[in-house]
Structures are given as C-alpha cells and as structure tokens.
Amino acid sequence: MIRHLLAATALLACATGAFAQSDPIAERQQLMKSLSQSARAPGAMLKGEAPFELSAVQATLKTFADVGKKAPTLFPAGSNVGHDTAAMPKVWTDKADFDAKWAKFESEATAAQASIKDEASFKANFPGVARACGGCHENYRAKKN
C-alpha cells in the first residue's frame, strides 16, 4: 500500500513539475522579451535620449541577473521546435557552452550592479554587459524579422 502511495505521489510530483514547465518555449520567449524591455531605459540614456537615472539602471541589471539565472532551465531537451522558436539546434548540441554563457551574463550583470554608481561608471560598464546579447545570439539564435 505504502508503495502505491509513494508511486502515486512521485507521479503527481512529476506531473506538477511538467505542468509548471508545460511551456518552456513560451516562458523563455517571455523572459527574452523582459530583457529587451528592461534594456530600453538604459539604452535611451546611453544614446542621450533620456537623463541618467541610477535606480532604473540598477533595476535593469537586476532583471538581467535574474533572467541569466533562470533562462538556462527553460531549454529542456525536446523544446527545440514549436512556437516559432528561433533557438538554434546548437543550444542543445553545445549545451555546456550555452549554459556557461548565461552564467557569465548573470555574473557580469551582478558585478555591474556593484560597479555602476554614477553616469560615468554606467557609460563605461553597461555596454559591456549588453554585448552579451549579440555574443550569444550569434551562435544560438536564428535570424528573424
């Protein structure tokens, strides 16, 4: 009896897990969108279209770090097709490098939270963090419009 109960519980746990992760493609697309949305404010500051605001920059870097932590979990095996995913097959064939790139992005965004204190340090350090986007897209995201 206890065995049955354990098995059922395990099954339920799996099902719940699967449910929470039911749509990793949609979830990661949403996550990517949050990256570009959060890059808007600092982008406008870099271009001189908006005045520098430290709190907004810090909020963006926090989003970057959070996404960098969460994103690698959203590319499970089998999630390479569907939802017009632009993820390239290399994501799964070079998974170790792909995950390492996310980890680097997370650590750079975290480090920038500490090093960016004013407009000068923002202009010096932020573009380097943002370069990670292109660095990763080059190998892992297909062209699209």
Binding site: A39, R40, A86, P127, A130, C133, H137, K144
Partner: peptide, 23 residues
C-alpha cells in the same frame, strides 16, 4: 546606424546568426 554599431534594434532586440558577426 545604431544597429550597425551595437546590434540592437530600436526595440532592443539583438540581432542573431551571422548578422552578429556582421555587426
């Protein structure tokens, strides 16, 4: 011009594939 400098579109998407190398 900005895209050719940084790879970012006006929506702050970042270009992928071989366009990243072009940038």
């Amino acid at each position: 011009s900005e895209l050719l400098a940084t790879g970012f579109t006006p929506d702050y998407d970042s270009v992928g594939g071989s366009m990243a190398a072009v940038v």
